[in-house]
Each structure stands twice: as C-alpha cells, then as structure tokens.
C-alpha cells in the first residue's frame, strides 16, 4: 500500500470478465438457476435473506419512498393477453385494452437479486473500486471501501442495489433491532452503517466457510456442501445454486441442459428453430451484455387467453 497505488488506475486490479481474459476463475464459478415454473411467489426466500444477511426492515413509509432494503425481491406479473398475430384482431385487441391484466389467469413471479454479472456495469463506475468481480465469479461489495457515491446503483440494469440512507444499527435514530432483537443478527455478516451500498452477496459468508474447509482438506467444495439462504428456504426447490465448474453440480447441468452459455450474449438455442426440445432457460437483459450468473427458467403456461 503506497501512494503510488492511489495514482494508478484502480481498474487494473479488477478481475474483469474472465472469458479468455487474464484472470480465469480459479476452480469456482458460483452460479444460480431459478425455476419460475416451480416458484409459488411465497416470499420465503426474501425473508430468509433478511434473516441471514442482517437486512434492515425499513417500514412502510420508507419503503414507499424507495428506501427499501430487500436484496431479494419477488416481482409479480399478472398474466396478460398475448398480442394477436392476426392483424385483423389487433383493433379489437387494442380496444379491449392492450396488455390488460387478468389476475384470474394467474401470475408469475420473478425472484430477482444481484445477478453477479461477469462484466458488471456497476463495477466500472465505482470511483473507489469498492465493487469488484472476484476470482470465484461473484460481484463483491466491500462496505468499508464504499464511499456512497451510488453510481453503481444508477448503472445496475437490474436495480438490485440498496443504499443505507440511515444508520439502522443506531437505536437512538432508527430502532430496527431494539434490545432483544439485536441477538438475531448474524455475526458473520457486517451490520452496514449509513452511507454504504449493499446488495446480494451470494451469501459469501457461507461460501467462505466451506471454501476454507475445502482448502484445508486440499479439495474443491463439493456439490451440495453449501446452500444460499434463499435456496435453503425455498420449499419448492426452485432455486439451485452451486459451483458451475463442478461437473456434478445441479446448476451447471441445468445451464448446459437449457443451452445457456454464460459467456455469450446471444444464445445458440434461440437460433436452432428446428430443435423441438423445449428450452426454457434465459437470462434477464442478456442483450445489454452484463453476462449475468443467474439463469431463469421460464414458466410453462397452460392456457393462453
């Protein structure tokens, strides 16, 4: 650590998008797959994330002011009328209210957390290098480095970064964890203070715990050895998480099965029209090329209106 560091370009020390780059993933690439066909939208994952990661419950008023702190949110989409392909029906369609919601037709739920992009837009804009791509393929957020410029929040296409507008651990101002409740805080996770950005970390405290054991035993983390809190809480098993480079991993198999390649922004499965095996895998906003590490599996719809 010297002043020369300050004068040099921080981005030189970042792990960039590793495909073919100078810094390949060293044995690990943590990734996730979420099956929206199984997801019931019960919010258990969101609650689990609150409990695991010391998230502040901000209350209705702050929530409405956009100061929510949920690292994992469930977005709800009512099924709506598909746009008719026949142009003759289009007028009738527009007249009946295009994109009208039909709650009786059901909804689908999109659990959305930090996508741990391989080429994360949030990383390049951080003036102090507080958010980086790590060697094991997660997007880090270093709280003590963060100066709260909130550029990353602006640049994240998924809007999954949350800013600490208040000092939630100070009982004098914000009583988020009044006396007995402070006992519920997870000692492995920092309680963030005012002026710091935060977001899903892929439960890094759990990953590090198993990686240390694995390192001591001179092996890699095995499939099933670690679960994220949201995965653990999901009663339907919609979330799978693991080391994608491990040939045994469920998540790696799912990615291959669905023909989603992490290093591509246009998936070849979309081009094989003749291939009649249904592929449901997709990544959100892939065309922006952040190369996200979370794959979603589309809901299979029974009926169309």
């Amino acid at each position: 650590m010297s002043i020369a560091n300050l004068l040099q370009n921080w981005s030189r020390y970042r792990d960039t998008h590793p495909y073919g780059g100078a810094k390949p993933h060293m044995g690990y690439k943590w990734a996730m797959a979420i099956d929206m066909d199984i997801c019931t939208g019960c919010n258990a994952c969101s609650v689990a994330c609150y409990a695991e990661n010391n998230l502040a419950v901000v209350g209705k008023e702050k929530f409405l002011n956009g100061k929510s702190m949920h690292w994992l949110r469930i977005e709800r989409y009512w099924h709506d009328t598909p746009e008719p392909t026949d142009p003759l029906q289009l007028t009738a369609y527009t007249a009946s209210g295009a994109g009208k919601h039909f709650p009786d037709q059901g909804a689908h739920f999109l659990p959305i957390m930090c996508q741990h992009c391989e080429a994360a837009p949030c990383e390049t804009v951080c003036p102090v290098g507080a958010t980086n791509h790590t060697q094991d393929g997660i997007n880090s957020q270093i709280y003590n480095r963060c100066v709260g410029s909130r550029y990353c929040l602006v640049n994240c296409p998924y809007k999954v970064r949350y800013f600490n507008w208040y000092n939630y651990q100070d009982p004098a101002t914000e009583n988020v964890w009044p006396e007995p409740l402070n006992q519920q805080l997870n000692p492995d996770v920092t309680v963030r203070s005012k002026g710091v950005m935060e977001k899903c970390t892929f439960c890094v405290q759990r990953l590090r715990a198993v990686m240390v054991d694995a390192r001591t035993e001179e092996r890699l983390v095995r499939e099933g050895e670690v679960q994220t809190a949201c995965q653990q809480a999901c009663m339907a098993g919609a979330i799978s998480f693991g080391n994608m480079l491990n040939p045994d991993s469920r998540v790696g198999k799912q990615w291959i099965e669905q023909g989603v390649n992490i290093a591509l922004d246009v998936q070849s499965k979309n081009e094989h029209v003749g291939d009649n095996t249904p592929k449901r895998g997709y990544r959100i906003l892939e065309n922006l090329r952040p190369y996200p590490s979370v794959m979603y599996l589309e809901q299979v719809r029974e009926s169309s209106v």
Binding site: Y19, G20, K23, P24, H25, M26, G27, Y28, N261
Partner: peptide
C-alpha cells in the same frame, strides 16, 4: 502489486477454456 499471472498462465487458461467449454483454469 501486480496480481496478473504471467502470459504462459494465460495460454494455459485459454487451453482450459477450449477443453471444457467453460471459463475455468
């Protein structure tokens, strides 16, 4: 402070990419 592996390492990494179809060394 330079953490970047030497270029020989990069070549090995690239080879690993080709072999596995994944992005790992």
């Amino acid at each position: 402070h330079d953490g970047v592996a030497p270029s020989a390492g990069n070549a090995a990494a690239a080879a690993a990419v080709e072999k596995k179809g994944f992005i790992a060394d």
